[in-house]
Nucleic acid binder design. Sequence first.
DNA 1: TATTATAGTGATCATTTGATCAATAAGAGA
DNA 2: TCTCTTATTGATCAAATGATCACTATAATA
Lengths: 243, 243
Amino acid sequence: MGPILKLLSLRCVPKEIYSVPQTKQPMKNKNRKNARIRLSRKEREQQIIDGAVRYFAEVGFGGQTRELARRLGISQSLLFRYFPTKDDIVKRVYEEVYLRRWRPEWEILLSDRSRSLSDRLNQFYHEYTNAIFEFEWVRILIFSGIKGVTLYQQYLKLIHDKVLDRICTELRAEQNLPDPKQTPITEREMDLAWNFHGGIFYIGIRKFIYGTEKRENFKAAIKDSIAVFLAGAPSVFKSILKK
Amino acid sequence: MGPILKLLSLRCVPKEIYSVPQTKQPMKNKNRKNARIRLSRKEREQQIIDGAVRYFAEVGFGGQTRELARRLGISQSLLFRYFPTKDDIVKRVYEEVYLRRWRPEWEILLSDRSRSLSDRLNQFYHEYTNAIFEFEWVRILIFSGIKGVTLYQQYLKLIHDKVLDRICTELRAEQNLPDPKQTPITEREMDLAWNFHGGIFYIGIRKFIYGTEKRENFKAAIKDSIAVFLAGAPSVFKSILKK
DNA sequence: TATTATAGTGATCATTTGATCAATAAGAGA
DNA sequence: TCTCTTATTGATCAAATGATCACTATAATA
């Protein structure tokens, strides 16, 4: 471990105990140091994934299977009884961290015209950042490296389809501008939406990568960001659609 | 190479030839296949760094020294005659890609009150994105992984100190709000500036990671983004400073 | 042309690390 | 208590990979 890594762990890595607490049970062979604990396949698999999420979030996907096993308190070979290859573990970590956090009701929320757009955006980004702004999520996204490209692409596609497209549509509606079904969302409008979202995403980066951010709650920052967007975007939207 | 990597190279990696063109020279030993080309230490060192920047940007820092050497058309052992360890090469790649792109005149530009802030921001972000939105820069930042944390921190500090602090100051001045020397920039103001900058940065991410972005020129997107910021930020700034 | 400093190489070492497999033992059911 | 299924392990393999070193060949200089 080089000095860079040491510095990192001092600054960013919460001091948690990753090894699973070993429930002490009466053992037949009391002298054995490595007393085995048998879990069902399902339990063990989940335990491995949970440990892998934490471990890889901490050290990146370059982390070794031996060390992961050590933290789990199991043998390295057991990992390969549950997952054919290390890449399969990595894949499951992605799924666990990303695919399970999106909540379908957000799509309904964003399109609910009985409430003001400002209200909706505030609630959505409040809930959304609560769901994703945590150690594992941001670190794994940033540190996923070359293997994470498809993950990154999936994440961006999700945001595009389920968030930004909706925001553009709702902004049009609020301004009495043409419906996207008649006049499709332009590239420039989508750019603005990306710009807005990217700004909020950056808060997470600063918190977990820059490491100087100590707040737990970003409600104020998000609220301001939404206010700027809603105050500035309409006139730009209008000028875009005039041409 | 797994399917993920194959997909990546199809989508994102420009087809360039990384091996250095071998200038054909009369050789004493014409039969030798591996004719040596002697370069001065300085030339060879630069050649290695140039190749390393391209190679690591393409495959990430997990790339192997043997493959790097192969692309350079030199032996793997020669790398270690110029750099004690692989980490030293990586370190030089960082320096090459990041520390050399900042232009001091940008600091003057941002503070030049003889021009409108909109003008200054447009020129700055136009030049700045021209300097950094290229394959190597974005990919190395994103793929630098756990080892790149300090790099990332340095980059964010540079932006904070030389760009965002100035933008906040200039926005205050344009609105006749108190000078930062008397009333320091608040956290909320800085958040807004980060938000703005992060939005522009995200364009680069989409171009080089998402891979669907084909434009070469982001002038319009940047212009719109600045317009939204300048239209929306002043009122929020004012309300922040009222309290 | 002969000399010499040194750029450059091939072979090889040593470690890391993903993966395999025969052997072991926990724990449920008879 | 015995049996049997299978979760679990230690030993080990094989490939990848950073690093080393004695040797080779180039090109500047005398």
